[in-house]
Structures are given as structure tokens and as C-alpha cells.
Simulated assay, not measured.
Amino acid sequence: MNPRRKKRLTLVLALVVGLGATVGLLLYALNQNMDLFYTPTELVHGKKDGSKPEIGQRLRIGGMVVEGSVVRDPQSLQVTFDVADVGPAVTIKYDGILPDLFREGQGIVAQGELVNATTIHAHEVLAKHDEEYLPPEVAEAMERTHAPLQYTEEQLQGSAQ
């Protein structure tokens, strides 16, 4: 092989290895910063594929604030409340000022770390802004959980008789 071709081959191989290393490091960095979304039921029982978050994992959880579950510490800004969808409730601990629209029975999304199987220490709490709005992740999860019943024409005609 002549020296010119050898030099080109070395340059091309160096570029390919460098590009591969760059893509690998980029994917590693993005994976470390990814926050997965869970509903309270998925957090407790796991997603359909059987995956459950690990203790200390960063995640986002969305659901409705359970009526009568909000407990405020009078000495600090610490607030503890439960969030539920159609299944079990999950406890959220938050230290800070809650959004103005936060209240019991309201849909929220909390971002934080999993402390134990049913407790999350949140560093951010978002509340929905009106009666019809649901965060996209919550709406999608609620649609999956509450899939509307599909009736055939025969079933509808049979029930009318």
C-alpha cells in the first residue's frame, strides 16, 4: 500500500473512531439526565413491561391530589400530600412554595427522586392551569388506564330491546 493511501486510511479510521466516541458519550450523558414519567399506579405496580424505578432514581409523576391529604409544616415550607390516579396513592414531600393553582382534587406533575416504593421527594411541582387542561403525559396515561369501552352495533341493538 502506498504511503498516501495509508495516510488517508488512518485519517478516515480516526474520524470514525472519534465520531463513535462522541456519539457514545452523548448518549451516556442524555441517559443520565432522562426523567421518566410514571402514574401512581405504574410507580407501585410497575409499567406494562414490568419495569419499576429504583430507589434514588429521578422521575416525574402525575395524578390528582387526594382530598384531605395536604399537610403543611407550620415551621417551614415543607408540604406533604398524596397523589393518586385510579389505583394506590403515592406520597409527595416538597420543600418550597407551591404554585398558586395547587389545591386538593387538582391535577399536578411532580419531578423529584424516589425515596421508597411509595414516597417521592420532589424538587418541582407543576399544577394545571384550568379545568380542562391536563399535562400531556397525564392525559396520555389516563387514556391508557381509562380506555373507553367500544360497543358493536349488535351490542347496542341488543341492549335497546
Rank of each mutant, 00 (worst) to 15 (best):
P74Y: 01
I61F: 00
V23D: 01
L77V: 04
E113P: 00
G96F: 11
P88V: 08
D95Q: 12
G24A: 13
L149S: 05
V109Q: 11
T91M: 05
A89Q: 09
L36N: 14
A89K: 14
Q75N: 15
P74D: 00
E154C: 02
L30H: 05
G63I: 04
L98N: 01
R8K: 11
E154Y: 04
A14Y: 01
M34K: 13
G105I: 01
H121V: 07
Y133T: 15
E104I: 06
V90M: 05
E113W: 02
L26T: 13
H121Q: 14
Y151T: 06
D73E: 06
A122V: 08
Y38T: 01
N33L: 11
Q106E: 13
F37T: 07
D100N: 09
E42G: 06
R144G: 04
T22C: 10
I61S: 03
E137P: 06
A14W: 05
N33Y: 01
K47V: 05
D49F: 04
K7L: 14
L25E: 07
D82H: 10
V23R: 07
H129N: 12
P148E: 04
F37H: 07
H123C: 01
H129D: 10
A117Y: 08
Q106F: 07
R144T: 07
V71N: 04
I108G: 05
G87W: 06
P136E: 09
K48I: 09
K52H: 11
L149P: 00
D49H: 02
T22Y: 13
E132N: 14
L114F: 04
G68H: 03
Q32S: 13
Y38E: 02
V23F: 07
Y28G: 10
G68N: 04
K48H: 12
L9H: 09
V23I: 14
A122P: 03
F81H: 07
V109C: 09
H123K: 10
G96Q: 09
G18L: 12
T10M: 10
Q150N: 08
Y38I: 01
V125L: 07
S159F: 15
L19K: 02
Y151P: 03
A29E: 09
S76F: 09
D35H: 15
A29F: 11
G158V: 11
T39P: 00
V65S: 02
R5H: 07
Q155H: 08
Q150Y: 06
V16H: 05
G18I: 06
V65N: 03
L126F: 09
H121G: 03
Q155E: 15
M1G: 12
E140N: 10
I55D: 12
G107R: 09
L11C: 03
A139P: 05
P40I: 02
T39V: 04
Q150I: 11
G50A: 07
R144K: 15
G50T: 03
L43F: 03
Q157D: 13
E143F: 12
D95H: 14
V86Y: 13
L30E: 14
H121N: 13
V44R: 12
V17D: 00
L149H: 11
Q75W: 06
E67W: 04
V17R: 08
P135I: 09
D82L: 14
A89H: 03
V66R: 09
I92Q: 01
E154A: 15
T91I: 05
V44T: 13
E131M: 11
S51A: 11
T10N: 10
P88Y: 12
N2V: 01
